[in-house]
Amino acid sequence: MSSARTVHLLRHGATVRPGLLLGHVAVAVTPQGIADCIRVAAGATFTQVVSSDLSRAAECAAALGAPVRHDARWRELDFGAWDGRDPTTLPSDALAAFWRDPDQAPPPDGERWSALIARVTAALADLPDATLVVTHGGALRAALASACGFDARQVWAFDLPCAAMVTLRIWPDSAQIVGLRT
């Protein structure tokens, strides 16, 4: 039987455009957001850093002072036509349908929840022990869904603010949340 792996999932720091649906759009991270990521990651033991290739995650990963490998599978959900938009300006019925069931009611021209879970599941499977991943809120929740079996509604019950870090202990057939830092 394979031994367990420890994986740290760090959400990027606060951006200069909070409150928007930030999928694949490029948005800078605030200096405080980067400092928060450095502070939270300082409590983790890791031998490598993997990051989403989107700038807000890559910027935070680079600030950790370790070599970074970029992996597009750790990108945020693609919000399609809603990317970069203020949710209060979107049709409320469509937005409510998305939050109720992001797989059956994805954003126009956007990604389905199941597609996000599939790519994050593959990325998670490729990680060796003692890896720190700098990613996004949606991808982090998709990792929790994949590793721990949570459904889409359950993963939104977790408050995962910018610079939050979830530590998972992963076995071949199960996983456990062993830490949460903010």
Rank of each mutant, 00 (worst) to 15 (best):
V29S: 11
V166E: 11
D151A: 02
A81Y: 01
D83K: 09
G80E: 05
L132G: 07
V16M: 02
E111K: 06
L132E: 04
V16G: 06
T121W: 10
V178R: 03
C148I: 08
V29E: 10
P106G: 06
R169S: 00
A35V: 00
T121M: 08
M1K: 15
A44V: 01
D53E: 07
A94I: 02
I117W: 05
W156H: 14
P102G: 06
A58F: 12
L20C: 12
A58M: 08
L22T: 11
T89W: 07
R85T: 09
G33L: 00
Q48W: 03
S92Q: 13
I177P: 07
G179W: 06
D93I: 05
T47D: 15
P91Q: 12
L180F: 13
A66F: 09
D86I: 02
T131C: 05
S52A: 01
V7R: 02
I177A: 12
S52H: 03
D71I: 03
A26S: 13
V7C: 01
P172T: 02
C37D: 04
S174H: 15
V134F: 13
T135E: 04
A143T: 08
I117Y: 05
W113N: 09
G137V: 04
P108D: 08
T15P: 09
A145L: 05
R17P: 07
L144D: 00
R141G: 03
S52P: 13
V68N: 12
F158P: 14
D78F: 10
P67N: 12
C60Y: 11
L95G: 03
G149C: 11
D53Q: 10
F79I: 01
G179S: 08
E76L: 01
G65D: 06
C60G: 07
F158Y: 14
G149S: 14
L132F: 04
L77V: 06
L22C: 09
A14M: 13
R153V: 14
L144T: 01
S3R: 15
T6S: 05
W99Y: 15
D83I: 00
L160S: 10
A57D: 06
R56V: 02
V27P: 03
A97E: 07
G13N: 10
R119T: 03
V40F: 08
R112I: 01
S2E: 14
G84I: 00
M1Q: 11
W113Q: 12
L90Q: 08
A130T: 12
A97D: 13
D159A: 10
A81N: 12
R39N: 10
T47P: 10
D78Y: 09
S2D: 15
A63Q: 06
